[in-house]
């Protein structure tokens, strides 16, 4: 089904101080379409995980927040774009318990469980783009 973007904005994330305002913006997008508290919480938690990766491994980058609709449901889509080193083995990175950093290593697979759609594109040396979508009733 085709997805339509109703409104969108971009944010530059370069420091840790940018994280809280970004989380709040994403939350506002969720509130605007009447998303439940639980789904809002899952969405901003997923955002928090991914923006940490963006800062830690990607050296900062760009985040796009969109209010989307597919005809049956409304949702919020967040895209994280960095120009970092990329991920060498994406299959491995999506496995529970894997991490190159000092976190608990449930970043990517855990984050995937919190949202309805999860898409990751990465190329060694050319950065990583992660797109997540949370539907209002999803």
């Amino acid at each position: 089904m085709t997805t339509i973007t109703n409104s969108k904005e971009e944010a530059l994330i370069i420091r840790e101080q940018d994280v809280v305002p970004l989380r709040n913006r994403v939350k506002e997008y969720g509130v605007k379409i009447g998303m439940s508290i639980l789904n809002q919480t899952k969405l901003i938690t997923a955002t928090s995980e991914l923006v940490r990766n963006l800062l830690k491994y990607g050296g900062g980058g760009k985040v796009i927040i969109e209010s989307v609709s597919n005809g049956r449901d409304n949702g919020v889509r967040v895209t994280f774009i960095d120009n970092g080193p990329g991920i060498a083995d994406i299959t491995l990175a999506m496995k529970d318990g894997y991490s190159t950093g000092k976190s608990l290593g449930l970043g990517l697979p855990g984050t995937k469980r919190l949202v309805n759609e999860f898409d990751i594109k990465t190329e060694l040396g050319n950065g990583t783009t992660v797109t997540i979508t949370k539907w209002k009733n999803g």
Partner: peptide, 11 residues
């Protein structure tokens, strides 16, 4: 909501 999210996250 925080408790459920943590559990889904695997924590």
């Amino acid at each position: 909501a925080v408790a459920i999210t943590l559990v889904e996250l695997g924590l």
